[in-house]
Structures are given as C-alpha cells and as structure tokens.
C-alpha cells in the first residue's frame, strides 16, 4: 500500500512540476496587471524548441536556455501589444496561443532530421534523470520527494523564493502595487511600464520552462499537443492559488495527482473508459473554479489584482 502511495506521489510531483513553473510565471505576470492567455502557446513553443535543441546538441542547459528565450520572445510580443500599444489583453493572449500552437506543430514537422522525414515525433533526445540520494532514496514517501530530477527540485526552491520575493522585498511590494493600482504606484515613483514589461517577460520565461519540463522530463520527446491543455489549466490554477505563489503547490499537487491516478488506473487495466479518465483534469478545473469563486464570495476575500487586464496611461483624463 505504502509502495502504491509512494509511486503515486512520485508521479504527482513530476506531473505537477510543469504546472508550478507555469503557474508561478503567470502569477508574476498577473500581479503586474497583465493577463497572459498565451500560456498554452508559450508552453508548446518551449516544449518543441527545448526538445529540438536537446536532440541536436545533447545539452540540457542549452535546451532550457532555448525554451526560456522563446518564452521571453513570445511574451515580449504580448507585452508590446498590451502595454505599449494598449491592445486588448484577452485578444492578444489568445492570438499568442493560436500562433504558438500552430507554429510549434509546424516546427515539430520541420525541425527533425531527414531520416525521420523531418519530423521530431518519435525521436529521443537528452532528458533529465532523477537523482538518487543515498539512504533517503530508499525510504518510502521520502524517496518520492527526493528521487526527482533537477527541474522538480527547482520547484522546491522556486515556490518559497517566489513567495518571499512577492511579499517580503521592495521589488515585490512595487510589483503588487502595479497590479493593484498603477496610478498610485506611478505617483509614488514606481516605474510602472518597466515593471509590467519585466514581469510579463520573466513570467513568460517560467511558463516556457514549464513547457520544457514536459518534453525533457515528464514525457521525454515531442508529440503533437504535448501540453494537453495544461496552459488553460494553469489559468485556473492561478485563480485557485489566489495569486499567491505559496499556494501554487496545492493546485499543482491536485492536478498532478489526477494525472498520476489516471496513469495508475490505466496501467492497472480498469474498465473505466479512457475517455472519461482523460476528461478528469478539465472537469476538475471547472469544479475548482466554481468552488473557489463560491469560497471567495463567502469569505469576502478578493484575490485578483484590482487592475488586472486594464491598460494604464499616465495622463488619461
């Protein structure tokens, strides 16, 4: 029994890792008042470029770097459109997703070697391996936590750091102010435009890392629609975590857990239809959104940055 729990926890954390990167990335972006619905596209682009780089160079650091740069580039487009051009954030984000999904699919059919018909599907590249730590890796449960690769270890660090940054540092204070009330932040000498750009782009980098985790670690390799809608689930997770990085872990565990259970049930040859199991994360997303909205209404807590989605200009009269 404990072995089963342990193995479910292992997969849960592994499946939750990419969600944590993307959720925290989007939390930072939204804290700056920018809604980026381009997540799905950015994750797919991060996944395809990092896999291609890992296949050709066998260098995982280079693969991650590629993902981060692609994430920065795509979110920079979103930043330019929404911050400088003051375009509608929803429209801009959706077009990033449409573009990213299509372009990632295109790259998956073009970047491969001639021997594979120029496709990336079915190839094997470098991938992250789990650590084996003496003693600890032999204890059930504990091993699920420590016997993970460096990207999963990364979230153990990222979550507390992101929380500390947001709530305990000068920079975090300015960021929160920008998303809540840009007029005030501006009047108090915070450089609103610079911060909005900085956090939209750095948030996009984290989102792309989440995509890279999929193709370099969770399901190594490239397949069409490798994200399986995770970009959309993350939008819900940001709400679920109420824009607090510390709470991102719970959403990631919940959805990672659903993945893990799904995985287990399928492996054990259950007669629950596969289609139903595949539906689970999306049904759960709806359930979570309903519950959180209900709970917010009950507790009178409002989590969303007040100026989320609004363009800001100083001399607006």
């Amino acid at each position: 029994m404990i072995g089963l729990i342990s193995s479910i926890l292992t997969i849960t954390l592994r499946a939750g890792t990419s969600l944590v990167y993307a959720t925290i990335g989007e939390i930072f972006t939204e804290r700056g008042g920018i809604l980026n619905l381009g997540l799905e596209g950015i994750m797919l682009m991060g996944a395809v470029t990092s896999f291609a780089v890992s296949y050709y160079t066998h260098s995982l650091p280079l693969a991650l770097l590629a993902a981060v740069l692609v994430g920065a580039a795509l979110s920079a487009i979103h930043a330019f459109l929404t911050i400088t051009m003051r375009a509608n954030q929803v429209v801009s984000g959706l077009s990033i997703t449409l573009f990213g999904s299509g372009f990632a699919s295109f790259l998956g059919q073009r970047l491969g070697p001639a021997t594979n018909n120029h496709r990336l599907v079915g190839l094997v590249g470098a991938k992250f391996e789990s650590f084996r730590i003496p003693v600890l890796s032999d204890i059930p449960i504990v091993q699920s936590i420590v016997s993970q690769d460096i990207l999963t270890w990364g979230i153990y660090l990222l979550i507390p750091l992101a929380w500390f940054y947001l709530y305990r540092t000068r920079a975090g204070l300015s960021l929160r102010a920008v998303g809540e009330n840009p007029q005030t932040a501006d009047a108090m000498g915070v450089d609103v435009f610079r911060l909005k750009y900085a956090y939209t782009i750095s948030g996009g980098m984290l989102v792309a890392l989440g995509g890279a985790h999929l193709s370099l670690s969770y399901t190594p390799g490239w397949s069409e629609n490798i994200t399986g809608g995770r970009g959309w689930i993350v939008i819900a997770l940001v709400i679920f975590s109420m824009w607090n990085p510390a709470r991102a872990i719970w959403g990631a565990l919940l959805f990672g857990g659903i993945n893990a259970v799904q995985f287990r049930l399928q492996a054990s040859g259950t007669n629950i239809p596969a289609g139903f199991l595949n539906m689970l994360p999306y049904i759960m997303t709806i359930v979570v959104l309903v519950l959180i909205t209900w709970w917010e209404a009950l507790s009178k807590k409002v989590g969303a940055p007040a100026a989320l989605g609004q363009a800001y200009m100083r001399e607006d009269k």
Binding site: L173, A177, E180, T184, M188, V302, A306
Partner: peptide, 19 residues
C-alpha cells in the same frame, strides 16, 4: 494614491528609492 489591499506601512514605503 493608496493601494487598498496593502497595509499602512507598505503604502508608506512604496516606491522609496533607497529602501
């Protein structure tokens, strides 16, 4: 020019350059 969801202290120091 105050951020409603922040404390008095946070509002007072918001944007101070040499903080």
């Amino acid at each position: 020019m105050l951020v409603d969801t922040m404390t008095v202290t946070e509002n007072v120091v918001l944007g101070i350059r040499d903080l």
